[in-house]
Amino acid sequence: MTDNIVEIDNLSFGYGGRMLHKGINMSFPRGKVVAIMGGSGSGKTTLLRLIGGQLKPVDGEVRVDGTVVHEQGRRELQKLRRKMGMLFQMGALFTDLSVYENVAFPMREHTSLPESMIRDLVMMKLNAVGLRGARDLMPTELSGGMARRVALARAVALDPAIIMYDEPFAGLDPISMGVICNLIRRLNDALGATSIVVTHDVREAFSFVDYVYFVADGMVAAEGTPDELSKSTLPFVHQFVHGEVDGPVPFHYPAPDYRGDMLRGHDV
């Protein structure tokens, strides 16, 4: 039990009436890099928000380090969140601060380190993502991929125990992609952290993660090590791993019958 730093237990959640998650069970062992995969709109970002305590589950619970996230008060939740770092899908850099100040932000807020130390740490983090030279730029002057790398540096600024990455590869060129894979792995192992990587990128993810969860229809559709899953004959996994259009994973948001929808406009 204790070697799982994050445990998701029979979790259900939905916005409004529509249930997005229907009883999800996952566990994230300490020190591992675990990927969560699933179609667009399957609720992966929402899952990370549930882990971070920004949303309350309808049923079930998320435990971080043994404590139930949604039962914590404000102070406890803040304490819990200081163990986490999160890379947002859009980067979410503070647009009124420079790259340097963005990475320094968590340090300034939570530590009283002297400026020289903050400077060294920020330079280290920026160097790790290859953007030390961009420290004086403003977020609006960065490309999408660069912004994501800065956000990554910011997410790990305080060496968190749990690092959550929401689509870290989207919009990166193949070289940076490889670099980021390496980086996630190295950060994880060097810090003794646990990483949760949400991604669509099967090939990249399979190359460096320890374990994979597939979510579909609000449930865990398949799980296993990359090796196991590559050999899997489950039609769902096969479709996802090989990027086939036809198969059990729907491309469409649930909708009424297409033909009926088109005809409806004409039946006046």
Partner: peptide
Amino acid sequence: LMKATEQLSAMEMMAVS
């Protein structure tokens, strides 16, 4: 705009109100 671009969410996740 800070809300729309998830900056406030990100701040919250950094345990900063």
